[in-house]
Design a protein around this nucleic acid. Structure first.
Length: 269
DNA sequence: GTTCTCGGCCG
DNA sequence: CGGCCGAGAAC
């Protein structure tokens, strides 16, 4: 009964975080309760904004309910999700209550509010993700499995869909689904999962009857040529992206130091 | 000084 | 209403 006053582990938070609910005992607001969180270091948090400030911009607390400590997809966000996922095989699986186990891509499956960036580490000793041929090539896969990727999009922490990438001219898909979107997903996932070069379907027979002649270790894409020009353009894109990231990190760092200075001033006063 | 607790503002 | 935070009370 008096459990409420105890610091509880919170399943939706990283290990070490505690949640506490304190019932007000007296006054006009008697019976009302206040919720606090404690970081692993013991710092107390008494509101969502405070928590958000501490955790930084990398964390989306948008759908986190501070009072209950649970993830509550708000109705607005539900609508966006629903709309975006219309007609998706992934959705059918979700309706049956089964998780989508059909992709081995680095897609976060957990529902923690403390989402961390998904970083796939492949160069540690004993790594099997990229080097294990059993997994990389011999594992049976459904023909045209790439169509399952349809509709998957990169989104930022507010669930806004990021600008989709554009495919270079000269890339053409092979198989039943000829949309650029699926082609992009197929190539991206091939680059992620295969340790061998991605050439596309080199056999012209595959174009005529992919169901029979498809090279399953290659994406559903016609053979293509990568020119020096393509490579230079890509290098430029990478450099620009890195500059953007550098600027963003710098700005974030400055904002944080300013923030913490303001905090300590506040305390000192 | 720090921590606890309730009031009260504001959306 | 309820989240959030100020500020007095308590330690």
């Amino acid at each position: 009964m008096i459990m409420e006053k105890k610091r509880m582990d919170c399943p939706f938070l990283p290990p070490g975080w505690k949640k506490e609910e304190v019932i007000r005992k007296s006054g006009l607001s008697a019976g009302k309760s206040d919720v606090y969180y404690y970081s692993p270091t013991g710092k107390k948090f008494r509101s969502k904004p405070q928590l958000s400030r501490y955790l930084g911009n990398s964390v989306d607390l948008g759908c986190f309910d501070f009072r209950t400590g649970k993830m509550v997809p708000s109705k607005l966000q539900m609508k966006n999700k629903q709309r975006r996922n219309e007609n998706l095989s992934i959705n059918k699986a979700m309706l049956k209550g089964k998780p989508d186990l059909n992709t081995a891509l680095p897609i976060r499956q957990t529902a923690s509010i403390f989402k961390q960036p998904v970083t796939k580490v492949v160069n540690h000793p004993g790594n099997k993700v990229k080097t294990d041929l059993q997994r990389a090539t011999e594992q049976p896969r459904q023909l045209f499995w790439e169509k399952r990727l349809n509709g998957l999009k990169a989104s930022d922490i507010t669930e806004e869909v990021l600008r989709t990438m554009e495919l270079p001219k000269g890339l053409t898909s092979v198989g039943p689904d000829t949309s650029d979107e699926t082609l992009l997903s197929a190539i991206a996932s091939a680059l992620h999962m295969s340790s061998s070069p991605i050439t596309g379907q080199t056999s012209s027979a595959a174009e005529k009857n992919p169901a029979i002649w498809l090279n399953t270790s290659q994406p559903l894409c016609k053979a293509f040529l990568v020119t020096d020009q393509d490579i230079r353009e890509q290098e430029l894109k990478v450099i620009q992206a890195r500059r953007c990231l550098e600027d963003a990190l710098m700005a974030d760092g400055l904002a944080r130091t300013a923030e913490s200075r303001r905090d300590s001033d506040h305390k000192a006063a």
